[in-house]
């Protein structure tokens, strides 16, 4: 009995904080735009009983989803978000892996401090950290002033308000999510395996590639998903650091919601985005499960 209670708890959590909100968004995406509070029809009237419920469901339709296929803006935005998220994830991996590797190979008394340094930026609000990048990257910002002073460049670099700034913002913000799982995987690795590899004639590079890298794969996959999933729907970073031609689905969603006041279409965009994300999330879970089975 107690076992079921323990299992029920996470399911209740998912039900209350994921499934119910999703169903509300789904319901709005099937509604029609209307000038009222809130700005869509039909509203569910609990007082109307069974007839009211039937009437409510008969008014829902897929019109808004059809609309999304009619304008290429939405597909372009989805594809462009996908591209930005993939590239940013790979960049984060390139930066994060060496850091995690260095941490895992550091003397064990240093590791808690290094870990602390990775987590430390979370103590400052995410928004403030993104704002500070505006100060660093702008045409008159610290980076340009430094490079001009050092004589490396003669004209200021235009980074702010371009997609480059968005990549920098995403890599910076999500780096800890890449480092921590990779570090966790590398740290529990048995170092005698490397000695064995070298005894059997591997060079250091071969040993890394044939032993260390495969053993850290689970960490790499976890890290990549933790970076990829939030970056694809990212809104704050592209709107603060990106230019007006940085097309991301989060911004399109914002415009549907605020400028068009079209909650039904905005909800449809969100539902499609979720559908796109569910595929990598399922892949991720499969991978986790396989891992567990292999270990068990």
């Amino acid at each position: 009995m107690r076992r079921y209670l323990v299992i029920a708890l996470p399911y209740l959590w998912l039900l209350g904080l994921f499934l119910v909100p999703f169903l509300i968004v789904l319901k709005i995406s099937l509604s029609d735009l209307n000038l009222s509070i809130p700005p869509y029809l039909p509203q569910l009237d609990p007082g109307a009983g069974w007839e009211g419920l039937k009437d409510f469901f008969s008014q829902l339709d897929l019109e808004n989803f059809v609309f999304l296929t009619e304008d290429d803006l939405y597909w372009k935005a989805y594809l462009s978000s996908l591209k930005i998220a993939v590239v940013a994830t790979l960049l984060t991996l390139c930066v994060g892996y060496p850091v995690a590797y260095g941490m895992a190979r550091a003397p064990s008394e240093w590791r808690p401090t290094l870990m602390m340094l990775v987590i430390l930026p979370f103590w400052t609000s995410f928004l403030i950290r993104v704002y500070s990048w505006m100060g660093i990257l702008s045409t008159e910002g610290f980076l340009n002033q430094f490079l001009l002073w050092a004589g490396i460049i003669s004209e200021p670099l235009i980074i702010m308000n371009t997609t480059k700034a968005v990549y920098i913002g995403i890599v910076y913000t999500y780096l800890p999510f890449m480092i921590l799982p990779i570090y966790a995987a590398l740290e529990k690795m048995d170092e005698s395996l490397l000695e064995a590899a070298e005894d059997l004639g591997c060079s250091r590079l071969q040993a890394f590639w044939l032993v260390t890298f495969p053993l850290s794969k689970s960490g790499i996959i976890a890290g990549c998903f933790l970076v990829f999933i939030p970056s694809i729907g990212e809104f704050v970073i592209p709107s603060l650091l990106g230019g007006s031609d940085t097309l991301m689905i989060g911004k399109v969603l914002w415009e549907e919601f605020f400028n068009n006041r079209d909650w039904p279409v905005a909800s449809a965009v969100a539902v499609v985005l979720l559908a796109i994300l569910v595929i990598p999330i399922i892949l991720f879970q499969r991978n986790e499960q396989k891992q567990r089975e292999a270990e068990g």
Partner: peptide
């Protein structure tokens, strides 16, 4: 009206983003 609003916002997105 809402329909024209959508046309106008779409046009504005195009003006801002080039798409």
């Amino acid at each position: 009206d809402p329909k024209l609003q959508r046309t106008v916002t779409r046009m504005w997105t195009k003006v801002k983003s080039g798409n």
